[in-house]
Amino acid sequence: MNQPIIQAENVGKIFPGGGGGLWRPAPPDVRAVDGVSFEMTRGETLAVVGESGCGKSTLGRLLLRLIEPSSGRVLIEGTDITTLSGAEMRQMRRKVQMVFQDPYGSLSPRRTIAQLIAEPLQVFGLVKNRRQMRERVAELLTQVGLPPSVMDRNPRQFSGGQRQRIGIARALSVDPSFIVADEPVSALDVSIQAQIINLMQDLQQEKQFSFLFIAHDLAVVRHIAHRVAVMYLGQVMEIGTKRQIYEVPQHPYTQALLSAAPEARLDRPYRRIVLKGDVPSPTAVPEGCSFHTRCPLAQGICRVERPPLAQVAPGQMAACHFAAPNSLGVAAAGPSLDKSNSPRARA
């Protein structure tokens, strides 16, 4: 059995609201991530999806300790990184890298491609001289589908898709075990998105690193993910294999997300589920189940008791009082989407 590469144990992040003034009360704290736990094995892609502001990007940065967690701990290959000193964490960063959302803002326009990709190599002492550095940069550019001859150019001379390839090459330069990709294709055209996704999959298969893939696009997620975690107001509402999440979703919020993305459902038509109301502020998360203010199935218990993230099928967990456990891997009695208006049902 594969040992976990990444283990998140009850990870949370609260951003202080800051101090008030003489005539102004202090703003409330922001609960960005609230008790998230999961594991990832080598070579696995876990996609994290949810509405804007649900804590996806904050979670990714917590896993790399780019920001400090308020609670819980993160283990990378068995080492608790939340307890490491600054020097120890700098060495750990060779194992963990990030691909950023904005291919235009993530690369300094003042440096050449060779300088950008070589910086991690120099920081960790992986090249001894300029010749070795240029050979390694040429190798990395070839791996991401760019000719080595471009290494002395500047990022402003490249398109968005090419810049994202350069960002991927930079992340791969130190042979990491774990990469967080924070919406890496959201700023790209659809045709370029497919190229970058296919490139990521090919490189992952070759190098066997683990991917945390943060995204909004459920069709992209269906293409790249092995497992999917659905977040809402800083909490994981449901997590399971790609098949379980897309074919037998157990949480009402997951069902609503899928009903809003017809391109992700392929041959499984669903009635559109329209959630009422707005997403509550992370400064005032509702008591009980955080989703109960918008959930069509909410009852009294939902308003007072927060449901645990519990197993509902082998490999599938949901934080819902009405998700029914079963042993078949298929949700038999949990909350389900109404398919009475689908062509299949009418037939």
Rank of each mutant, 00 (worst) to 15 (best):
Asp267Lys: 10
Glu287Tyr: 01
Arg272Trp: 05
Pro282Asn: 07
Asp267Tyr: 09
Pro286Gln: 07
Arg265Ser: 02
Pro269Arg: 09
Val279Cys: 10
Leu266Cys: 11
Ser290Asn: 14
His292Lys: 08
Leu258Arg: 09
Leu275Asp: 01
Pro269Leu: 06
Pro280Gln: 06
Leu257Asp: 03
His251Gln: 05
Phe291Asp: 00
Gly277Arg: 04
Ala284Arg: 12
Ala256Phe: 11
Tyr253Lys: 08
Thr283Tyr: 00
Phe291Lys: 00
Ala264Trp: 13
Gly288Ile: 04
Pro286Lys: 05
Ala256Gln: 04
Thr283Asp: 01
Val248Ser: 06
Leu258Tyr: 10
Arg272Thr: 13
Tyr270Thr: 04
Pro262Asn: 13
Pro249Lys: 03
Gln255Val: 02
Thr254His: 06
Ala284Lys: 13
Arg268His: 07
Thr254Gln: 03
Gln250Asp: 00
Val279Asp: 06
Gly288Gln: 06
His251Phe: 09
Val248Gln: 02
Thr293Ser: 14
His292Ala: 06
Leu257Gln: 05
Gln250Ser: 05
Lys276His: 14
Ala284Val: 02
Gly277Pro: 02
Cys289His: 04
Val285Cys: 04
Val279Leu: 04
Leu266Phe: 13
Pro252Asp: 04
Ser290Pro: 03
Arg294Ala: 11
Cys289Ile: 12
Pro280Phe: 11
Ser290Leu: 09
Asp267His: 14
Pro252Tyr: 04
Arg268Leu: 15
Ala260Gly: 08
Gly277Asn: 05
Pro269Met: 07
Pro252Glu: 01
Ala261Tyr: 08
His292Trp: 06
Leu258Gly: 07
Thr254Ile: 04
Asp267Cys: 11
Leu257Glu: 09
Ser290Thr: 13
Ala260Glu: 12
Lys276Glu: 11
Lys276Ser: 13
Ser259Lys: 10
Thr254Cys: 10
Ala260Lys: 11
Ser281Pro: 04
Ser281Ala: 11
Ala264Cys: 08
Pro282His: 06
Thr283Gly: 07
Gln255Arg: 13
Leu266Gly: 13
Phe291Thr: 00
Thr293Lys: 05
Ala260Thr: 13
Pro269Cys: 08
Phe291Gln: 00
Thr283Lys: 08
Pro280Arg: 04
Leu275Asn: 06
Thr254Tyr: 07
